[in-house]
Design a protein around this nucleic acid. Structure first.
Length: 520
RNA sequence: GGCCCGGUCGUCUAGUGGUUAGGAUGCCGCCCUUUCAAGGCGGAGGUCGCGGGUUCAAGUCCCGUCCGGGCUACCA
């Protein structure tokens, strides 16, 4: 599901909840070429993941079932209503072939006329002529007879009054030659039948709104309130599309975004609660949501701000809940399918700064530890929680906790800079000795960060060092292979004496320091 | 081409005739600090698309203009 569609669905939910109304899902599957069960499944999956709840719909039941338009068509619902329009003269049969329509359009374009079907040869055809064509078995569509020489006015809840010279509105197809209704017909009939109060949809529908209004008028039905929401655009101002990055909601799930963060962010494109409120819980959004806060102008998708929201939501989570969420994330096969795809995609750089191939292997490592050693993994996650943006980031951030001691990748520059310092061999040796004796007297207590700190500080002091950096950095590089990460003492406490000893040994050799005895 | 919609820092936005045009993000700096983040503090960034009016007073009202976008299917 496209981000824009998702945002609209969210607005509908928020508004329904705000008003104590009913949110209904209807599957508009009248185009047999476009519809697929897989697409519908993806739709439902997206809605469920995003917490977009429905009170009525094909998978939820309700008083106006069925909720698939194809099923409603089979029931003869649309046939019944098109009959009424035909009888009242608000619709007519048109027998043009697609070639004839194509020719007409070309003629209009060449002569710089308005394009569209404004009657052709059938709007005003004699009854006998129509009967003749029908008897001859010619295929036909049923078109809406838009009133001429008048003004069609709609009252849009966001933009106010919008009007059209009805002579500029062409006659849309209501029933296709295969008997299926178009959106223009089916959605309006259903909206009436299902007692829909608000038509909330994307701005791209404004152009067809006069047709829809005229249809309600033709039936003598009360018009719902039209709410045309602004579109979400890419950085270049054009409709958000693949080349702007990911447009599918599920891609953001697989990228490691939290549904609540995405929802919070997306709600704020085209809507503002007024004042300075930005970070909002779902109940807060419902409380504040109102059509008067909707923006008429389109918004641009700002990936950076989405990332900020996600970071905020990750930091706000209880570590235990976060661990659960991460487990869910790495247990989902789609996560790995997605990163496989990313690894092959040249444009993946728009979405991640990290190399997808390494993300993939780091996520596998994360999956192993999170299920096999959840207690250890939890401690690692706690330390990385404040410095991560997406769930996927935990892969890289935590990798050094999980990687085998002898396979830990070492940043070359960091090795050159910190492991070559003259005091490093002695430092490592002292630490190895200290931790070895600790390891030989195993206790139930985990290694305390304070103990590590005093050890390191003692070394610095005994060497007359005023700053801790020259001591801390070599140890960090030895233990993590990197120069960035959580506080050294916290990280040592989580790693534990065994891993520390083994990594110090390895790093010592890497630095070309001879003479360090084996740890055990 | 025609018809429609839109236009406040790069971006999301507050603002409904009187504000030093506010917040958020991003960017930069400082603090914190063993690194990176997070967090705290601060800074740069807006002639409210442009031009006319109305008014003592206009981002806010009116007209024009420019630019951007959407639609222009037997798709939704």
């Amino acid at each position: 599901m496209h981000i824009g569609t998702f945002r609209d669905a969210l607005f509908k939910l928020l508004y329904a909840r705000h008003c104590g109304g009913v949110n209904v899902l209807r599957i508009e599957d009248t185009d047999r070429n476009r519809y697929s069960p897989e697409a519908e499944e993806e739709f439902i999956e997206t809605l469920a993941w995003g917490g977009i709840e429905f009170d009525e719909g094909p998978h939820f039941g309700g008083p106006y079932a069925p909720y698939h338009q194809s099923e409603r068509k089979a029931l003869g619902i649309y046939a019944e209503y098109i009959r009424i329009l035909l009888d009242k003269g608000f619709a007519y049969k048109a027998f043009e072939t697609s070639e004839e329509l194509e020719q007409m359009r070309r003629y209009q374009e060449i002569n710089k006329l308005q394009t569209g079907y404004f009657g052709g040869s059938w709007r005003d055809a004699a009854a006998e002529q129509v009967a003749e064509a029908e008897a001859a078995g010619k295929p036909y569509v049923i078109r809406q007879r838009i009133p001429r020489d008048t003004t069609i006015v709609i009252e849009d809840a966001i933009r106010g009054r919008i009007e059209w010279d009805s002579n500029t509105v062409d006659d849309p197809v209501l029933i296709k030659s295969d008997g299926m209704p178009t959106y223009h017909f089916a959605a309006m009939v259903d909206d009436h039948l299902m007692e829909i109060s608000h038509i909330m949809r994307g701005e791209e529908w404004i152009a067809s709104a006069p047709k829809h209004a005229a249809l309600f008028d033709a039936f003598g039905w009360e018009r719902p309130i039209f709410v045309h929401c602004p579109v979400i655009a890419g950085k270049d101002g054009k409709k958000l599309s693949k080349r702007h990055g990911a447009t599918s909601v599920l891609d953001y799930r697989d990228l490691g975004f939290l549904p609540d963060a995405l929802v919070n962010f997306v709600a704020l494109i085209g809507w503002a609660p007024g004042g300075d409120l930005e970070l909002m819980s779902r109940p807060q959004m419902i409380e504040h949501f109102d059509i008067s806060g909707l923006q008429p102008s389109s918004g641009v998708w700002d990936y950076d701000k989405l990332k900020w929201f996600n970071g905020q939501y990750i930091r706000a989570m209880e570590p235990e809940a976060l661990l659960e969420t991460i487990i869910e994330y790495v247990d989902r096969p789609q996560t790995f399918d997605f990163w496989e795809l990313m690894a092959c995609d040249k444009d993946a750089g728009q979405l991640t700064s990290a190399d997808p191939t390494s993300t993939l292997s780091e996520l596998k490592l994360l999956r192993r530890f999170v299920t096999e050693e959840p207690t250890y993994a939890l401690e690692a996650i706690k330390l990385e929680q404040p410095r991560v943006v997406t769930l996927a980031d935990f892969g890289e951030a935590c990798a050094f906790f999980f990687e085998d001691d002898d396979k830990l990748p070492m940043d070359e520059k960091a090795v050159d800079k910190w492991l070559t310092l003259p005091h490093v061999p002695e430092l490592f040796q002292r630490l190895i000795e200290a931790f070895t004796s600790m390891a030989q007297r195993p206790s139930d207590q985990p290694l305390a960060a304070e103990a590590c700190e005093s050890l390191v500080r003692a070394f610095a002091e005994s060497h007359g060092m005023e700053k801790l950096g020259p001591v801390v950095h070599p140890i960090r590089v030895a233990l993590t292979g990197k120069t960035a990460g959580p506080g050294l003492f916290e990280l040592m406490s989580v790693l534990g004496p065994e891993r520390i000893i083994s990594r110090l040994n390895r790093a010592g050799k890497l630095a070309g320091t001879p003479g360090i005895p084996p740890a055990k």
